[in-house]
C-alpha cells in the first residue's frame, strides 16, 4: 500500500466517524472547509507549540507550581485545529493527547527537565504530523471524496471491518484524552453495533479467530483500559486487534467471492 492509499484510507474512514466527533459538541463548520482554514490551523499549531514551550520554560526556571501544567489541555481545547484533526485522523489525534498528557504528567511529577523536553518534542512531532494530515484531507475534501464517503457508510462486511478498525483508533484517542469511560463505551458499542453484525459470517470461516476477537472486545481491551495501562500498551492491544481484523477482512473477501448470486 502506498502512502497516498494509506492517507486516503485514513481520511475517508475517519469521515465515517464525524458524527461521533460532532456528538462532543466541539466541531465547528470550519471542518467542512479545511482548505479555507489551513492558514488558521497552521497559525494555531505554531501558537500551541509556543504556549507549551512557555509552560516548559517556566517549569525549568521556576518549578511545577509556577508552570501550571494543566494549561496544556486548555491550550489544545481552545483551537479549531483540535476538531480538524479529530475528524480527519484519529490515530494522530490520539498521539497529540498522549503528548499533551506526557508533558503535563512529567511536570506534575517534577521530572527532570530533559524528560519534560522529550515529551514536548514528541508532542511537537505529533502536531506537525497532524497538520500534514489535515492538509492532505483538505486536498481530498476539495475533490469531493470525503463528502461522498460520509453519506454512504459501511454497507458490506468488508467495509464494516474497516469501520471497526477506525472505531478502535477512537478508543485509543479517548483513552489518551483521559476519558476511559468513553473509551470503554466505544469498545462496547463497536462490538454490539458493528462486530456482532459480521461475526456470524466470520465464524463460518474461522471460529478460532472469532473466539480470539470476542475475548479482545469483551475482556482484553476493556481490562487494559480499566487497569489504566499506558497509552502505548492500550494502542498495542488495539493494533493487535486491527491485525486480526485485517485477517478477518481477507477471509470475508474470499467468502464473498464464493457466495452464490441472489438471482
Amino acid at each position: 500500500m502506498n502512502v497516498h492509499t494509506i492517507y486516503i484510507s485514513l481520511i475517508l474512514s475517519a469521515l465515517l466517524l464525524t458524527g461521533q466527533a460532532q456528538a462532543t459538541g466541539t466541531v465547528g463548520d470550519h471542518v467542512n472547509d479545511l482548505q479555507g482554514n489551513l492558514d488558521n490551523y497552521t497559525e494555531e499549531v505554531h501558537w500551541i507549540i509556543d504556549k507549551v514551550d512557555g509552560i516548559v520554560n517556566t517549569y525549568q526556571a521556576r518549578g511545577r507550581e509556577a508552570a501550571g501544567a494543566d494549561g496544556v489541555v486548555d491550550i489544545w481545547e481552545a483551537v479549531d485545529f483540535h476538531s480538524a484533526i479529530e475528524t480527519n485522523n484519529v490515530p494522530i489525534y490520539a498521539s497529540i493527547w498522549q503528548g499533551l498528557f506526557g508533558v503535563k504528567t512529567a511536570i506534575d511529577n517534577q521530572e527532570h527537565i530533559e524528560n519534560v523536553r522529550e515529551q514536548q518534542a514528541m508532542l511537537e512531532q505529533s502536531l506537525w504530523q497532524a497538520l500534514g494530515a489535515v492538509k492532505m484531507a483538505a486536498n481530498y475534501q476539495q475533490k469531493g471524496l470525503l463528502a461522498t464517503v460520509e453519506s454512504t457508510g459501511a454497507s458490506t462486511p468488508v467495509e464494516t471491518m474497516d469501520e471497526i478498525k477506525q472505531l478502535l483508533d477512537r478508543v485509543v484517542a479517548k483513552f489518551a484524552e483521559w476519558l476511559p469511560d468513553e473509551a470503554t463505551n466505544i469498545v462496547h458499542d463497536t462490538y454490539l453495533t458493528r462486530f456482532e453484525g459480521v461475526e456470524g459470517m466470520l465464524i463460518e470461516q474461522d471460529a478460532a479467530l472469532v473466539e480470539d476477537l470476542e475475548k479482545d472486545f469483551n475482556v482484553t481491551l476493556p481490562l487494559a483500559i480499566k487497569d489504566n495501562l499506558s497509552v502505548d500498551e492500550v494502542r498495542g492491544v488495539v493494533l493487535a486487534m486491527q491485525a486480526k481484523l485485517d485477517h478477518a477482512k481477507s477471509l470475508l473477501v474470499e467468502a464473498e467471492k464464493n457466495r452464490q448470486d441472489v438471482f
Binding site: 467495509e159 453484525g197 459470517m201
Partner: peptide
C-alpha cells in the same frame, strides 16, 4: 436497519442489477 452482516445489501444490489 443495520444487521445481518451485509447480506441484505447483497439482495439490494441484486435487485438493483436486475
Amino acid at each position: 436497519g443495520r444487521g445481518e452482516g451485509g447480506l441484505y445489501e447483497s439482495i439490494l444490489d441484486a435487485i438493483r442489477k436486475r
